[in-house]
Amino acid sequence: MQPISQRICCFVTCILFLCASECWAQSGTAKPSATPAGQITGRVVNSGGEPLPGASIYAGSILGNVRGKTVTADSHGDFKIDGLEQGLYNMFANMPGYVFVSKTPTGDSPGYYRIGDSVIFTLTKGGVITGTVTGPNGPLVGVGTFATRVRDAAGKKILTAIPSGFERRTDDRGVFRFYGLPPGAYIVTAMRPRVGTIVPSSYDLDVPTYYPSATRDTAAQIIVHEGDEITADIQYRGEPGHAV
């Protein structure tokens, strides 16, 4: 007959073996829990609250570790972005000729969006500035024109050191056209082209001409409101610059 101590030792060993077997069986059949995917919904409207079908809406993770998704608003301006992982998202809406105004989340994360949020994007019709650049002999072709926003819609000054923003080159009629402009005050400049220029032009040595036919100090500002189309013809000065 075995001593009591040996029998107790065998009993404890059996218990430990059974526990280990049970744990192994459970760990072998356990499956990792998948992170559920979700969606963000919303609508894109104009400043009058009317839907904007065909607008593009983008959602991208603020961490940049998940590929962003782009969808198109339906005929009612509604959109739904499916298959999003849990996290915070930046969102934007865009439509040619329109300007982004605001986004209104119904969730509790202002500025960012979570799964389950609904958002309303408001886009306004952009303004238009168009005109003709002419010289002593008529319309000028291939002049670089720039629309620089110097004040916002509230009249607040925007600091810019050089002509910036939008550039358009005059066509064969000497005509330029800027569209999709945010509301505000603009100065329009005619000068040598700056974008995609390889071959020298006849305007390279000229100082810029500002609307209507002025220097920078006397340039007239053009006030643009939502949906405005303004004609701003420029009489090109053609004055040579000076080397410093």
Rank of each mutant, 00 (worst) to 15 (best):
90 N>C: 08
222 I>Y: 01
167 E>T: 11
14 C>I: 11
199 V>M: 10
84 L>Y: 08
30 A>V: 15
239 E>T: 08
203 Y>C: 05
105 P>R: 15
169 R>N: 14
174 G>L: 02
133 V>P: 05
45 V>E: 14
70 T>Q: 12
166 F>M: 06
60 G>S: 13
169 R>P: 03
99 V>Y: 01
212 P>Y: 01
166 F>N: 06
171 D>N: 13
213 S>G: 10
85 E>D: 07
13 T>V: 10
167 E>M: 10
206 D>N: 11
198 I>E: 13
184 G>K: 00
243 A>H: 10
150 V>F: 14
122 T>S: 13
3 P>Y: 13
141 V>N: 08
228 D>V: 00
239 E>Q: 12
61 S>Q: 04
209 T>Q: 09
23 C>M: 14
203 Y>T: 01
75 S>C: 03
47 S>Y: 01
156 K>S: 08
236 Y>L: 08
57 I>L: 09
242 H>F: 06
67 R>G: 13
189 T>V: 15
173 R>M: 11
10 C>V: 07
87 G>P: 05
221 Q>G: 04
86 Q>H: 04
93 A>T: 04
66 V>H: 10
44 V>W: 14
76 H>E: 11
196 G>I: 06
77 G>W: 14
74 D>E: 02
228 D>W: 00
101 V>C: 07
138 G>H: 14
85 E>R: 03
85 E>K: 07
159 L>G: 13
5 S>L: 04
153 A>T: 08
71 V>I: 10
49 G>D: 02
102 S>P: 03
53 P>S: 09
237 R>G: 13
89 Y>M: 03
1 M>S: 02
42 G>W: 05
13 T>P: 02
196 G>P: 01
240 P>L: 08
213 S>K: 11
156 K>W: 02
199 V>S: 08
117 D>R: 15
227 G>Y: 01
175 V>Y: 02
12 V>S: 04
213 S>C: 03
62 I>A: 05
113 Y>T: 08
242 H>W: 04
114 R>H: 07
21 S>R: 06
219 A>V: 11
12 V>D: 04
213 S>Q: 11
14 C>S: 09
180 G>C: 04
91 M>K: 09
219 A>K: 10
95 M>A: 09
44 V>E: 11
22 E>K: 09
8 I>P: 02
46 N>K: 08
113 Y>M: 05
140 L>A: 05
71 V>D: 09
201 S>V: 05
159 L>D: 15
150 V>N: 03
167 E>W: 00
231 T>I: 09
136 P>T: 12
208 P>A: 12
236 Y>I: 06
189 T>Y: 00
187 I>S: 02
178 F>P: 04
183 P>F: 06
212 P>E: 01
203 Y>W: 10
135 G>K: 05
93 A>K: 09
194 R>I: 05
128 V>K: 03
38 G>E: 14
21 S>T: 07
117 D>K: 13
187 I>E: 05
31 K>T: 14
16 L>C: 13
243 A>I: 11
77 G>L: 15
5 S>P: 00
192 R>Y: 02
159 L>P: 03
178 F>A: 04
193 P>I: 04
77 G>H: 15
188 V>K: 01
65 N>I: 05
80 K>I: 06
224 V>C: 00
70 T>M: 12
222 I>M: 01
24 W>R: 07
34 A>M: 05
78 D>R: 15
129 I>A: 00
111 G>I: 12
128 V>N: 02
28 G>F: 07
233 D>T: 03
